[in-house]
Design a protein around this nucleic acid. Structure first.
Lengths: 342, 342
DNA sequence: AAATTTAATGCAATCGGTTACATTGATCAA
DNA sequence: TTGATCAATGTAACCGATTGCATTAAATTT
């Protein structure tokens, strides 16, 4: 608790009998400072326990070297992959990141945006919350010309930079696969259809049905918030459907596993009675019994691409507003939950 | 991209023909400012799109109103619960939090600590990484009197504030439960025994064996990093043990489920042939088949307690260095994976 | 009416780095 | 020898909000 007084470059300057300017330069390897002086400065800094004051520096430089990352949740392996992709790139470019999560809540997303804005991040990477209604909270960033890049859950109308996968194609692929396995009555569990990712997967689902001359039945699509409670509810609904569906394509792995479990408890066999497919390739997809067919989401790559676009914009090497949407490849991973033919 | 010039309190002052000091006070509801003036200031601020400069403020106040939270991973529901507990308390106290995660890597933990130190957080809440060897990287905080509070994974030697559960008791309870279910050859999957949480659970395991007059067999304890690969490896080892074990008590749910799945694939029935218990009550414990017996970790409460201790220290209401260890209650959750008797 | 208290606002120094623009002394070319 | 060039360092003005200490005017007391 001895509350050592904070050492500043002025203290170092006095101790070394040189000017604060020289100290400042010496600490950051400025070319004009002689090697000998640099060493003296750095040694003294270490000895006296100096730590630079970021605020003073940021205040003067009008730059924070920090970027904000806003996500809807932390607890999916997709999101943590994206984060690690972002971190890899930003760390290399000597930027810090501040992670904010909205717990899928629009209001909290708004609060987080405002917070990051006041923390003066140099740029922002974002995936929208489940129930985000508009992009007004990003206006301040746009006004000040702070670069913005959306990934995964994006707003189709927004004209700026986005990094996504082709959700329609992925939805199409999953559904086609189920059809190939002999399924004809496929339930689709969708998240909020306001979100591009869910709306597009539904489109892909419909397209696959059409292509295979299967009728689209509105009552086979269940839109909910993908929570455990909602999925247990959905499972009940599925049990009551007549004739019974022979496949479930859920918009994420968690939902798929919850429903799969609820049905298994009722004595339904997977995949023989009902085949299952999820989305995201979360850890749980490998740990369920049977293992879950899903779509691999290249999270790390997504994070890397988003971050490196942002970095190159900040370096003036490119303009993010001219960057069109980047679409990353995803891939279907077939596992036991949908394999009815060998 | 119009890069509007940043508005400062000086601009507001000029526009309103008053002093910057009054503007500063008016913006933060200082009692000495008249109601009318306050309103004029706040209206003008809104109109001109003013945003306060945190750096200038922090620099002047020598305080950031930000606390750092360092965790080993983000992808467990235990950790996200702790975070939400912390957020609840800090938000109410008007503090921001910066979350840093080490991906279970000591080096990254060191880097994060240094980063947060330079960001000048007013306090730090931490759970150690898997392979953290010492607490040297916290020295700077201690030197400057920045309050520090550890939770969950703590260093027993550290004399300051800690929030933990009674891991020994929890380990004892789990093991006793398995024994009650008729298990006599119980494998224990431990994480790094350098970490208190794992070492203590092992102690509890041994104590329960002793109490029930079962011999402790070193070869029944497998210490690994709890990764998927290591657990698959462990499952193989278990298969080769003769006579075959009749229970597995793993130090987290993920490990338990991975091993359970690997054994199930070999035709072993759970819980009849081998009973299972995990730890943490992660989501996956409810989604596995059979559902997993585990120990509930009161994450939210842990976060709340850690944060509120920190807040009251920062408010000068108490001294964190005098706070002894806080032990929170955990509880055994019995599910199908260990129920051999009804 | 004079003295005192209270309310509202202003002045100016301060927080600690950064950097454009000197300054100094030394080295080199002519 | 003189002027030019260069390397190394110094000077001082920022960046924007905060706050102790005035100051002024209005309200209240004596």
């Amino acid at each position: 608790m001895q509350q050592t007084k904070e050492i500043t470059i002025y203290d170092l300057a006095k101790a070394l009998n040189i000017s604060p300017a020289t100290v400042s330069r010496g600490l950051k390897d400025h070319p004009a400072i002689s090697h000998a002086t640099k060493k003296r400065i750095q040694d003294m800094a270490r000895e006296m326990g100096y730590r630079s004051n970021n605020f003073a520096s940021n205040l003067r430089r009008q730059k924070t070297n920090t970027i904000g990352v806003m996500v809807h949740e932390l607890n999916s392996s997709f999101i943590t992959s994206v984060l690690s992709g972002i971190e890899k790139v930003t760390t290399a470019a000597d930027y810090d990141i501040i992670i904010a999560h909205s717990s899928e809540d629009y209001k909290k997303e708004v609060a987080n945006a405002s917070n990051l804005f006041h923390k003066r991040v140099d740029g922002l990477i974002t995936s929208l919350a489940y129930n985000t209604e508009n992009l007004d909270h990003f206006e301040p960033f746009i006004q000040k010309g702070i670069p913005l890049i959306f990934f995964d859950r994006v707003e189709p109308q927004y004209p700026g930079a986005k990094v996504v996968i082709d959700n329609m194609k992925a939805g199409y692929d999953v559904t086609s696969h189920l059809i190939q396995q002999g399924c004809k009555r496929i339930v689709h569990i969708a998240g909020s259809l306001k979100r591009n990712v869910y709306a597009d997967r539904l489109k892909g689902y419909r397209k696959a049905l059409e292509k295979n001359k299967l009728a689209f039945d509105e009552s086979m699509v269940i839109e909910n918030d993908l929570s455990e409670v909602a999925c247990v509810e959905a499972a009940k609904k599925i049990l009551q459907m007549k004739p019974r569906p022979d496949a479930v394509f859920a918009c994420n792995d968690f939902a798929a596993v919850v429903i799969m479990q609820a049905l298994t408890e009722q004595g339904i066999r997977v995949p023989q009675d009902i085949a299952f497919a999820g989305f995201n390739n979360d850890t749980i997809a490998r740990l369920s019994i049977p293992k879950l067919t899903t779509v691999n989401y290249p999270g790390i790559q997504m994070g890397e691409i988003a971050a490196s676009h942002l970095m190159s914009h900040l370096n003036g090497e490119s303009n993010i507003m001219q960057t069109s949407t980047v679409i990353i490849k995803s891939e279907l991973i077939i596992r036991d939950s949908s394999l009815r033919k060998k």
